[in-house]
Design a protein around this nucleic acid. Sequence first.
DNA 1: TTTATATTGACCGGATCGGTCAATATATGG
DNA 2: CCATATATTGACCGATCCGGTCAATATAAA
Lengths: 211, 211
Amino acid sequence: MDRSFDNLDSAKRDRIINSALHEFSVNSYEKASTNTIVKNADISKGALFHYFSSKKELYAYLKSLVFKTMVEELEEKIDWNQTDLFERIKEAGIVKFQVSERYPDMIGFSMQAFAHLTTDEIKKQSMAYMNDLYMRIYQYNIDYSKFKDGIDIAKVITIVEGTIEKIARTIQQNVTVYKQELDTNAVIDEINAYMELFKNIFYKQSDRKRG
Amino acid sequence: MDRSFDNLDSAKRDRIINSALHEFSVNSYEKASTNTIVKNADISKGALFHYFSSKKELYAYLKSLVFKTMVEELEEKIDWNQTDLFERIKEAGIVKFQVSERYPDMIGFSMQAFAHLTTDEIKKQSMAYMNDLYMRIYQYNIDYSKFKDGIDIAKVITIVEGTIEKIARTIQQNVTVYKQELDTNAVIDEINAYMELFKNIFYKQSDRKRG
DNA sequence: TTTATATTGACCGGATCGGTCAATATATGG
DNA sequence: CCATATATTGACCGATCCGGTCAATATAAA
């Protein structure tokens, strides 16, 4: 990547990044069109290939940007002293949500990028890394003694993850289909409500309010 | 559609249907390639345009097939006398799972097809219909008195849906990434285990075993 | 064998692809 | 103000792929 891209004012840079993320989210790498990217970013074809030497390089840049951004944001903004699982998960969810306010198609891009990795080895490696990161989120400093006896923690995590992703999908749908505006506080309130419900049903009586 | 397509032996017909469903799942309508469809279905270009007069007609056929199949299967195979919510949801999940054994890309196609409907009106209508169908699944003959007092049923449904979809995605991932074979009974067992967990946490003590 | 039907794949004009580059606009330094 | 350097433009390139056609061929029915 030409360093001139980094010197662009951030509004223009984000316009290009978001346009590219969107195009690569909606289409496979091969079918994603640089023409569409420049049109939506409102720049000329030549400009794009001035910043990036090729489509492939643009794609690689986006991959590392997404990866780096996600990891850094999670590292920074998560309170790693938090011992309550549901509060931890809520924080991670909010971080992802905030990132997608700046880069709306980042998560879509990740999924598309992962689905179309070429070799199985690379897929397995990425999967392994993702699992590592998530294990840290779910385990580092977390107090599991609050849970009722006999509760299968792995299942709890599946349930909570599934629920949050479901909420995110529903919001996405409301925004794109019903043209609802995105109300950040409402989203956080909703996630909060679910987390309280989870505490109520999964924690021992005496631990319900401590979380 | 030419009726000659219906007279094809079902193996060949399903090969064409699945190849087309897959191509339209992975790509938008415009970028989906009839060349790719015929290649993967192992038929000639001429044959496809003998069965269907155009790409658009093929797409319309798939839409109505998917819609009809889903509705009919749900109507037929769900036990509408079942009063337990989690058993009902389990049945619906298993029906979808069985359908996707015959047509693996049916659900992916539905999502893609929905996401790319042209007018907002049509989107809203489809959304409304989906909601209706799901409301019947969640409400018809269901005994909600088993739930603990103060439990928010809408949230419970979101949680259970999210969990089942999460399980489905994980299985899909294991199949495509890790080349694991798909063990139907194991999947049903897993869904069962989650449903038992849900009964344990959401039902009153006295109703946990009756479901 | 004759007739009817199913299937093939080379071929069509047109659209789009990733990428180039001479021309132009803008910014910088004296 | 000019001179130079840099940023940006969009018409243009050959290549590829598009949806769809159709004369030729294979297969089945009569």
